[in-house]
Nucleic acid binder design. Structure first.
Lengths: 176, 176
DNA sequence: CTTATATATGTCTTTTTAGACATATGAAAC
DNA sequence: GTTTCATATGTCTAAAAAGACATATATAAG
C-alpha cells in the first residue's frame, strides 16, 4: 500500500507520464523503495480508479501517445494524511549479498575478497551515479526539500556500505 | 528464492527448530532481510521437501513437541554453490519513512521535527538492542565470522541513519 | 485470579512483487 | 542496412510476502 504514496509523492511535484514516473522512481527512489515498471503501471491504474490521480491524454505525432497524470485534491489530501497519520514501520531490507556472509567460515580469503570486491564495485558505481545526480539536481532552480534529503541519504548509505566493505576486508585478512 | 539461503545460513551454524529460526532471524538478520513466521514455516517445509534440510522430532513433556532441523549434504552444498555463483543483485529497501519526505514542503518545521524524532527514537532503540546483542555475542566462545560482520553492519547502518536524521533536522531548521 | 509472555507449529487468503510477454516508432550508432 | 536505444503503455502468470486465524500449555507478573 505504500508504493502508491511513493508514486503520489512523485506526481505531486509536477504532472508526469507513467514512463516518467518509472524513470524518476529509479533515479530518485532506489535508495528507499523498489519497484518495476509493470507494478507501477498497474498501481497507476488502481490509483486513478480510486480517484487519487487523473490523466490527460497527449497525442504525439512521431512518438507514442502519452498519459500525463496529475494528483486530484483527494490524492493530495490522502498523501498528506498518510504521511502524518501512518504509524512508523521499520524499514525492510532485502540484501542478497549479506546472506552470503553466513558461509564465510567455509571460504578462503581469496574467495571472500572476490565477493567483497564485487560489492565494492557495485556500490562505487551507485555512489558516483548518485553524486552525479546530486550535482545535476543542485544546479536546478526548483529544488524540493524531499529530494535534497533523500539524495543525501543515498550518498550516506553507499558511503557507509563501502566503509563497511573495506573494514570487512581488513578484518578477514587479519583473522585468516 | 533468497529467503531459503538465509534460513540455510542459520541452520548451518547449528541444528535448530523453526521457532528458533524465527527468533534468530529477527535478532540477527533484520539488518539485511525481513520475513514473518508464517513465511518461514512454509519455506522450511518446502526446503525439507527439496531435501535441503531434514528434522528430528523431539518429544517434550511440558512444552510442545518440536522439530529440530539440520542441513543435509545437499543443503550445505547448495548454500555454498549459491553464495559463490549467484550473481550480485542490488539490495532492495522498503523504507516507509523516507517516502514521507516528499511532502515536507507542505509541513511546518514542528510537524517535520515530530516525524524525524519518531524515527530517531525508533533507530535509537534498534541501535541499542544491536549493541547489546553484539556485547552478548562477543562474550561467547564460538563466534562465527558472519555474525561478527553483519552485527557491525547493523550498527553502522543505524548510526548512519541517526546521523542523517540529525543532519536533516538541522537542515530543515536552517531553511524554514 | 487474571493477563501476558514464552514455547511451539501450523494454515489460509489476499496482496504485493517479479519477470516474462507484447507492441510500435523514431533516432542514433555502427 | 541493421541493431540498439529511447519513447510509451500495457498484460499475464507465478512466486513471494503479509497478516489474520488457529491451538495448547507453562510460567511469570500484576
Amino acid at each position: 500500500m505504500s508504493l502508491r504514496y511513493a508514486l503520489l509523492g512523485i506526481i505531486l511535484k509536477k504532472p508526469v507520464t507513467g514512463y516518467d514516473v518509472v524513470r524518476i522512481f529509479k533515479q530518485q527512489m532506489i535508495y528507499f523503495w523498489s519497484s518495476t515498471h509493470s507494478q507501477i503501471y498497474t498501481e497507476l491504474h488502481k490509483m486513478e480508479n480510486d480517484n487519487l490521480i487523473d490523466h490527460e491524454l497527449v497525442i504525439q505525432e512521431a512518438l507514442p501517445n502519452k498519459k500525463v497524470y496529475s494528483l486530484t485534491d483527494t490524492g493530495k489530501k490522502d498523501l498528506i494524511r498518510w504521511a502524518i497519520e501512518e504509524p512508523l514501520k521499520p524499514a525492510k531490507i532485502k540484501d542478497n549479498f549479506l546472506i552470503k556472509t553466513t558461509i564465510f567460515p567455509f571460504l578462503s580469503v581469496v574467495e571472500i575478497d572476490k565477493l567483497l570486491d564485487e560489492v565494492i564495485e557495485r556500490e562505487d558505481k551507485i555512489l558516483s551515479m548518485t553524486k552525479k545526480w546530486q550535482e545535476h539536481f543542485n544546479s536546478q532552480e526548483e529544488r524540493d526539500v524531499g529530494t535534497i534529503l533523500t539524495v543525501e541519504y543515498g550518498i550516506r548509505y553507499s558511503e557507509m556500505y563501502l566503509e563497511w566493505c573495506k573494514w570487512a576486508k581488513q578484518y578477514i585478512n587479519e583473522i585468516k
